[in-house]
Design a protein around this nucleic acid. Structure first.
Lengths: 327, 327
DNA sequence: CTGAAAGCGCTTACAG
DNA sequence: CTGAAAGCGCTTACAG
């Protein structure tokens, strides 16, 4: 079967303790012993069992990544940054993925209880206080991406600013009836922030917020953008800012093309995220760039370097407006 | 600190062995004892430590997912199926992701050596025999998606058929000079199979394979589709079958639009995969549908049910041609 | 029907 | 400078 530390010790003619010292580069070991042990390790092709090591050290060397689901481009972009981080840290940690599919509390409970991770990165999930304190009690830091909660570390974009930039640009191009496609039922923090940025930009130009121009979004798939598109027309909007993201915006572009509504002449469309696809659709989609790669990377960094009792860190990235052909 | 099995035993007034029996629902335990223990478990909110359990059982309850990288839609679609599988199996297993970025052997070695997984799912990676035998020696099954290798389980699409369907359709629409965009340096199995299907379809119509119509692809990003597009024009092709996938096809569509080449009148474009975006681009992309969700799910099923010594299983899914506006 | 004991493969004070 | 021993939190034959 698999070779253990005892096998190495036997071959090298030392105790398994000594082998452990060698592996951990303890200064007490003489060069001669070290050499002997190293040779045995090589000869047997010994690799330590991670499970055993985890048990005695009380840490799993695993980072958990939790999201409502992993099948959208948003998650992929964040994942990319995490991959970069892993690569640099030499794969000392593994990453496990958990998609909650709405069952946030249950999944998070499993993780703390089974002590399955040394740190947890949450994508667009806001855990409740009971859960947060459980993690705290176990010394497992929580890193929130695109959300905030007391006692948690935070990595996010300045969504207010992002929305402000986009809507301001629409106003500059002369648009006045700007619809807002946004999550309205239990909106995540990023959604409500974007709404705030939208209102702020309007206010600055002396335009009052008209709640009739709000189009509620729930599922964030492009089909939903298509479905709600008639509402936009009915409201007689001359632009739509999709705070709900690029996919919704692309669904709208698709429907606009089918109904022969000229974009941007008759209707400007702006997304949020700057996913890769924005360049591929026709017309190409103007959007707000979020540095998702960097955010993922930063979250990884926090996850792997934070001490149990580090005070909550908060990292906010600045967005940019990317002008393409849909405005 | 965390509550252990001993704490439960103490509170319930039994030995920790008995607690373990209760957890595993051993028939020898009387209802009365069981009840007592259950109450203690509930009261202390006890959850077993997975690391300890793994160590004694010699299995990690973890499935490793290995791919060159995780940031493309192909991986996302497979991931979706895996998520479904996890969900159904009640999260008994965790999934860890490893992106190799070309270092296949090194990453796989880490996994076997550290005994970090009970089964490994490989996406478009073909491990060499040395590695395969190491996994075999450790009783860890390897499940290959879109590749094949001796002694490994296989989940794939009938790529020959997929390419055949696509090219046959192009021929039916009257196209004759059909370019083939395909990986040529160290092509993966799916790439060479698709080439074979392409050749077979041509042959059936009495058209000889013209190697001058092959466009080599390496990186699979849409920018590469744009870059190589001029070659297609130079070859005076009237269609292009992108065996290298939808992204390459979309890059070509984008470039065709810029150069005002009418698709499909002047040039038909066909992709492979049927990613979600195919409907969003203009013109919408005809492609070959691979049931990636089902494939991911099947791989998961194999990973979690296979015994150490199960003979290699091979599951082949049948593709469908999806006609949209680019043909 | 239940408990004492050994063991999974390591790490790390503690002796010598 | 190195080894014997205890322990991480479990599971599972083995006794009783």
């Amino acid at each position: 079967m698999a070779v253990t530390i005892t096998d190495v010790a036997r071959l090298a003619g030392v105790s398994h303790t000594t082998v452990s010292w060698v592996i951990h580069d303890d200064p007490r070991i003489t060069d001669k012993t070290k050499e002997k042990v190293m040779k045995a390790i090589e000869e047997l092709d010994y690799h330590p069992n991670y499970t055993a090591r985890s048990l005695v050290k009380g840490k799993s060397n695993n980072i958990a990544l939790v999201a409502p689901f992993f099948s959208s481009t948003f998650e992929m972009d964040v994942l990319k940054g995490i991959e970069d981080g892993m690569d640099e840290s030499g794969y000392q940690y593994s990453v496990s993925m958990y998609s909650t599919r709405g069952e946030d509390a249950a999944v998070l409970n499993q993780i703390v209880r089974g002590r399955r991770a040394d740190a947890v990165i949450l994508l667009t999930i806001k855990p409740d206080q009971t859960i947060i304190s459980q993690f705290k009690a176990n010394g497992i830091p929580l890193i929130l991406i695109e959300e905030e909660a007391e006692g948690c570390h935070v990595v996010r974009t300045n969504n207010i600013e992002g929305a402000y930039l986009a809507v301001t640009r629409l106003l500059e191009t002369g648009k006045r009836r700007i619809a807002l496609a946004v999550e309205t039922e239990n909106p995540g923090l990023s959604q409500s922030d974007r709404k705030e940025g939208y209102i702020r930009a309007l206010k600055e130009k002396g335009i009052a917020f008209d709640r009739d121009l709000v189009v509620p979004i729930n599922r964030f798939r492009f089909e939903e953008g298509q479905e709600v598109f008639p509402e936009i027309l009915k409201k007689d909007a001359d632009a739509v800012f999709c705070a709900a993201g690029d996919m919704i915006a692309m669904g709208m572009l698709l429907e606009a093309r089918k109904l022969r509504i000229p974009v941007p002449e008759k209707l400007s469309v702006v997304g949020f995220d700057d996913s890769q696809m924005c360049e591929l659709v026709y017309p190409s989609l103007s959007t707000v760039h979020q540095p998702l790669n960097e955010m993922g990377r930063k979250a990884w960094e926090l996850a792997t370097t934070l001490k149990k009792d580090s005070p909550p860190e908060k990292v906010v990235f600045e967005p940019r407006f990317i002008e393409r052909d849909s405005t």
